[in-house]
Design a protein around this nucleic acid. Structure first.
Length: 173
DNA sequence: ACCCCGATCGTA
DNA sequence: ACGATCGGGGTT
């Protein structure tokens, strides 16, 4: 598929990827939705990142090649979806926090846990190459919509960093 | 083996 | 403002 995001897209600074993922179409099995909200997490110098303390079994995918999924389990109940950024060996990921679902039915999924629950994304979908898969990938889009920049949600350290990006249109809801 | 805490969310 | 709920990761 020609208009699918390739590894080169993700092989860039995490902040750039987080901003440019806004407005792109996420395809997962029978669901499709426009990305409306993202957050950037960078290993080095980011105490809010799971990768801050180095490679563990859970975070090793964040240190691997870009263009892979990173799905983690949190609060005993929820899964959250990320996409790995930065070159192989450098930790980085973009958390997908909001999705304007277009298939199978129009619906606004706000929140990373709700989003995964609704789409059926679990840790079984961790560490998948989304530049190769035919059921899990992102379609390119011609432009990035206007967005707001804010602190990230739900973290206790690193709040001074303005690494959350929210599509303006979404704020009206 | 143990303990604390968390990139959340629904309810109050 | 708070409780549910349990895996991850650091410590013993």
């Amino acid at each position: 598929m020609a208009d699918r995001l390739s590894r080169d897209f993700f092989n860039r600074p995490t902040l750039i990827v987080a901003q440019e993922l806004l407005g792109k179409l996420l395809i997962f099995q029978n669901s499709a939705g426009l990305i409306t909200e993202t957050e950037a997490y960078i290993g080095q110098d980011d105490p809010a990142s799971h990768a801050y303390r180095g490679i563990t079994k859970r975070t090793q995918v964040m240190f691997g090649p870009p263009g892979f999924s990173y799905v983690y389990f949190i609060y005993g109940m929820y899964n959250c979806l990320n996409f790995v950024t930065e070159e192989d060996g450098v930790a980085g990921a973009v958390l997908i926090r909001g999705l304007l679902l277009v298939e199978p039915a129009p619906f606004h999924l706000n929140g990373p846990g709700k989003l995964c629950k609704h789409l059926g994304i679990t840790r079984e979908h961790n560490a998948l190459d989304i530049t190769e898969s035919d059921f899990f990938y992102i379609k390119d889009a011609p432009f990035t919509p206007e967005f707001e920049t804010t602190p990230r949600i739900g973290i206790s350290r690193g709040q001074e960093k303005l690494w959350r990006f929210v599509v303006r249109e979404k704020l009206k809801n």
